[in-house]
Simulated assay, not measured.
Amino acid sequence: MKCACVRECVCISLIAYQMAASSLDAEAAAAGQQDKAGSGSYTTAATAHQIDTDSWQQVGVLLVVGFNCAYVLSFSNLMMAPLGWGWGIACLLFIGAASWYANWLLAGLHVIDGQRFIRYRDLMGFVFGRKMYYITWFLQFITLILGNMGFILLGGRALKAIHAEFSSSHSPARLQWFIAATGFVYFAFAYFVPTISAMRNWLATSAALTVAYDVALIVILIKDGKSNKQKDYNVHGTQAEKVFGAFGAIAAILVCNTSGLLPEIQSTLRKPVVSNMRRALLLQYTAGAAVYYGISVAGYWAYGAAVSEYLPGQLSGPSWATVLINATAFLQSIVSQHVHISYTTFFSSSPLMA
């Protein structure tokens, strides 16, 4: 039975690879025809977003800074603590490689028979039919909404931590006030930067914030790790808790590596969209993964099984470092949140499948 499952997986991978390769060939042929005819060769669905405008470098940086948010960089508690060193590192590497390969194949399905699929639901509907179109629409929308709720909570928590450093009151303001302030800032940013392509002027600032956050965080993690002489790397809990914790860790690693928005992100790329998307993915799964994997491993090394679900809240050090880390976490969350929320407008930019 195991051999049959392996054989089926290999067959599916080969079919997907052949479809991706044929899609890439079709795209190259279409691009050649476009050069000769001087007009577009793809059939593309109507959308309010900008199509064919961004370079692969811009999209690659967008993927790197979009995934390197404070939530993902605090996943030591979710990814490493439930698995321990051995299984944790193995799952990080295996799931990361599998996610890259899956997205590499999916990027090749962006153009099929001259039709360009700029939405995940359109591709699923084309391949599996109308029912899967609606299922994909529902699941993707719910996932994005829940993810953005998490970003708002992250921003509110960072603002509250900053306020606590400057407040002398024993009863600091409630978290709800900071959540409301975060929501207002997110709304204002989304209003003035309506599309993902319009973020090109903000990527350099976002990258600088990411570097500042990562450097400050890793310096304090190394300091705390050296001073912490009683680290516990054991996986605690009952057998059932360990099993559920392991599944949760695998899910968290998947969240770190893929967004479920690849066709939407790929739609902004200039032609050739397949090869350009694969270049951007390579940047994400090398430079990007090295950062958020490195921070997660460092956090687990520093605190062991006692690592917090929000690393900035566990760090020692001066007040200015706490303020700096939480401020960069909040500002970077604006960009990361916008990367995900901007694509929800794809759900209303065209009518549903008839």
Rank of each mutant, 00 (worst) to 15 (best):
C5K: 08
C5N: 07
V10P: 03
I12D: 08
Y17H: 13
M19F: 11
A20T: 05
G32F: 11
Q33A: 10
K36L: 08
S39Q: 12
Y42K: 11
T43D: 13
W56V: 00
Q57G: 12
Q57C: 10
V64N: 01
F75Q: 14
M79V: 06
A81I: 10
L83Q: 07
W85R: 03
W85Y: 05
W87P: 03
F94N: 01
A102W: 04
N103F: 12
N103A: 13
N103V: 10
A107C: 11
H110M: 14
I112E: 01
G114K: 10
Y133I: 11
F141L: 11
L144M: 14
S167Y: 00
S171V: 14
P172N: 05
P172Y: 01
L175F: 14
A180W: 15
G183Q: 04
F192W: 02
P194N: 00
T195C: 02
I196G: 07
A198D: 12
N201K: 08
S206Q: 08
D214E: 13
D214K: 07
D214Q: 11
I218S: 06
D224I: 08
Q230S: 14
G237M: 09
L254S: 12
V255E: 01
S259D: 07
L261F: 02
S267T: 09
R279W: 04
R279Q: 09
L283Q: 07
A287M: 13
A289L: 08
A289M: 04
A290G: 15
Y300E: 04
W320S: 02
A321W: 15
N326R: 07
N326P: 04
I334D: 05
V339R: 03
F346G: 03
L352Y: 03
L352E: 02
L352K: 07
A354K: 15
